[in-house]
């Protein structure tokens, strides 16, 4: 338990710093002790945050929710289907596909940014919601994880039994396999959600209208302006705090689904042994 508490302090400390900092003035941000409150002005900071640029921050939040929410759901479904197929059907080329997926993860995103942008431009999609959403829907890591868990958590016997009962393949996937894979799906959903939310590179390259920006890109724009106008520091930090609080709330909420996943896999293990 001591170990867990020490680790909690380590992990939470920086988040705590962001929260404390969001209550300070720009001057106190640097002038006061970082881990304790100075003159408390969270209300004023929040008002400033949501009023800046005619309330653009709210728009950025909504965009992030759209990109990350829709992107994560679709990416999870797509990865789950692919991972399940790779784990539970044997066909020629299966291992090859799997290796290519793994290799895709090795390529640094810096090298892909320009080609992706040129392709999107060609297709007339640059600077649109789709230009960020479409690439976000592919998660090689998600497919990898889904395959690994489908292989272990979905018993072949269960699939065969369902087939004998006359269930179609799609139905088996949706009603038998997916529930058994729940912990993995929640994990994939969580990872892709946070990954898309924090992705900075893709929207940076694709988007130029501020109205389409997600929170991270918007905050970067503000952060760049601190060089000439330090009051943007306060906007950036308060914005980061709000963004972090929302994400952490989302993480905690998504974790609830783990429990249902647990009981289901408890049910299926009977068939496993």
């Amino acid at each position: 338990m001591t170990f867990l508490f020490v680790c909690t302090i380590y992990f939470v400390l920086p988040v705590y710093w962001v929260l404390v900092s969001s209550t300070k003035s720009t001057a106190d941000l640097f002038g006061s002790f970082g881990l304790w409150f100075a003159h408390f002005r969270l209300g004023a900071n929040l008002r400033q945050l949501f009023a800046a640029d005619q309330g653009i921050f709210l728009r950025w939040l909504a965009n992030s929710v759209l990109y990350a929410g829709l992107g994560a759901v679709l990416a999870t479904v797509i990865s789950a289907a692919a991972g399940y197929a790779l784990a539970k059907y044997s066909f020629r080329g299966r291992e090859a596909i799997f290796s290519v997926i793994l290799a895709g993860v090795m390529v640094p995103p810096t090298a892909l940014a320009l080609p992706l942008y040129l392709m999107m431009s060609r297709a007339g999609l640059a600077n649109s919601y789709l230009s960020v959403l479409l690439p976000s829907m592919v998660s090689p890591f998600g497919a990898y994880l889904a395959r690994v868990y489908a292989a272990s958590a979905v018993p072949d016997e269960l699939i065969e039994a369902a087939r004998i009962d006359g269930a179609g393949e799609l139905r088996i996937f949706a009603r038998v396999a997916a529930p058994a894979m729940t912990p993995a799906l929640v994990t994939i959903g969580l990872f892709t959600f946070v990954g898309i939310w924090n992705n900075f590179f893709l929207p940076l390259v694709m988007l130029s209208s501020q109205n389409l920006y997600p929170v991270t890109l918007g905050l970067t724009v503000w952060e760049g302006q601190t060089y000439r106008d330090p009051s943007f520091y306060q906007l950036t930090v308060t914005g980061a705090a709000v963004s972090a609080v929302l994400l952490i709330a989302a993480v905690i909420m998504l974790q609830r689904f783990w429990r249902s996943g647990l009981t289901r896999s408890g049910l299926t293990t009977g068939a496993l042994r």
């Binding site: 797509i78 399940y84 197929a85 895709g104 080609p115 393949e169």
Partner: peptide, 21 residues
């Protein structure tokens, strides 16, 4: 069936990973 399950992923992967690589 496996092809159908793999189709969306493969399409997107080809477009947004393989092609730019």
């Amino acid at each position: 069936v496996p092809a159908l399950f793999l189709l969306p992923f493969c399409l997107l992967f080809a477009a947004f990973f393989v092609a730019p690589i």
